[in-house]
């Protein structure tokens, strides 16, 4: 196996006093769809922002093509970011521009191509996500699923090497969910992308991912291909995969003893 595109080594990240990640390591292989799963609120989005250099870790390395993202100068970081792109949960389309202009935005910002070529490129990207007919709509006129697909077209506008999906399935109806699942897989294979999918939708992730990391309690609790994970012996992994309400991750938020607290009130 050749060197991974993104290599996270001994990452520690704190937010205030709260430790989000403690000495965590992960590898993302080129050309594969790697998924990061875990319960809500463990900072999966934070991980993507760390890879994108928007946040700096307290210690550890985040290597992108061998360059350590947190130590890069501003200029080098911006160069590295041109090779990656991120699909935000909300889509994050620019509300004051049409779909066409949104997709054209990164091309216009980073190249000096003539408008005719930009038009061709944009139409190709829109065709890939099936929104060529919606190019003149404003983002406000799109449904949630369409907005996410438009944002995906924008994310692949400059043919990046790495694309990061932040909760791509959250809040989607089954049809748009199916569309996005298919798009992630087909774009990954057709364009030779490396994909990182952050999600807690077990079924969808297991169906498209080549490799899965399950993150909980500040560290990786299990990783492997979907088949390997299903056989995983950790009860935590099993609870998450099967969606049991109670287990190693308790149903109750950390609290004082129930009986004692009730008695306090009556006193």
């Amino acid at each position: 196996m050749d060197k991974p595109l993104v290599d996270i080594q001994h990452l520690t990240f704190r937010r205030g006093d709260r430790v989000i990640y403690d000495d965590m390591s992960m590898q993302f292989q080129r050309g594969k769809v790697t998924a990061i799963m875990g319960p809500s609120g463990i900072g999966k989005t934070t991980l993507l922002r760390l890879i994108g250099g928007q946040l700096k870790p307290d210690s550890g390395q985040i290597l992108f093509e061998g360059a350590d993202i947190p130590t890069l100068s501003r200029q080098d970081l911006y160069q590295a970011r041109k090779k990656m792109s991120m699909l935000f949960q909300s889509g994050a389309l620019f509300t004051e521009m049409s779909v066409f202009d949104n997709v054209a935005f990164p091309i216009r910002e980073h190249t000096r191509l003539p408008e005719a070529i930009i038009r061709t490129m944009v139409l190709m990207k829109l065709e890939a996500v099936g929104l060529r007919g919606a190019r003149d709509l404003m983002p406000a006129e799109l449904s949630g699923g369409m907005a996410r697909r438009a944002a995906l077209a924008r994310a692949i506008a400059l043919d990046p090497q790495l694309i990061m999906y932040d909760e791509p399935f959250a809040g989607q109806d089954p049809i748009s969910m199916g569309v996005i699942v298919r798009l992630i897989r087909s774009l990954n294979d057709a364009l030779g992308l490396t994909s990182i999918v952050v999600s807690h939708d077990v079924a969808e992730v297991m169906s498209i991912a080549d490799y899965v990391y399950v993150v909980a309690e500040r560290r990786v609790i299990g990783h492997g291909s979907p088949e390997q994970l299903r056989q995983h012996e950790s009860p935590l992994v099993q609870q998450f995969l099967q969606g049991q309400a109670d287990g190693p991750v308790p149903f109750h938020f950390k609290a004082a003893d129930y009986a004692t607290e009730l008695m306090e009130l009556s006193r």
Binding site: R49, G52, Q54, Y78, Q79, R81, K82, M84, S85, M86, F88, Q89, S90, A92, L93, F94, T95, F105, P106, E109, H110, A151, R154
Partner: peptide, 13 residues
Amino acid sequence: TEQLSSMEMMAVD
């Protein structure tokens, strides 16, 4: 709506 953030990720300040 993460527009600023996504701009940053597109290497646009």
